[in-house]
Amino acid sequence: MKRARSILLATAARYLMPLMLIFSVFLLLRGHNEIGGGFVGGLVAASALMLYGIALSPAALRNLLPLEPRLLVGLGLLAALTSALLPVLAGRPFLTGLWLKTPLPVIGKVGTPLLFDMGVYFVVIGVVLWILLSLAEEEAQ
């Protein structure tokens, strides 16, 4: 099924998408202290990418992605699991938060919960894209 594509939307998506992605990373990184977090960040990023995918084409989005969505899901789960297991290596209980002493500029304090949140971020992006992109690609066939 071919759909007429809106040039306006396509152009807007091309410029909006990177901005929204940056915003999503911003949401992710400051989420521990202000409004935001991995879930919101991931959803915003996924919306941005899907907007791009719908405005241009699923194939264009697929070309843009450096990784398969399902690999993103795996990566996210791996990141979360790593953050959970790192304290075990350090002799602390599973999922204990470990923090670096000195805060980094912009981001603030860095610790395993941030890695965990990044895991959430990637899982959410991966899941949403995996579902919607599969549907969209099937639609495009």
């Binding site: 879930f39 959803l43 959410v124 899941v127 949403v128 579902i131």
Partner: peptide, 9 residues
């Protein structure tokens, strides 16, 4: 928060 995301799935 998690319920919303899961309900999407």
């Amino acid at each position: 928060l998690t319920a919303i995301v899961i309900s999407f799935g």
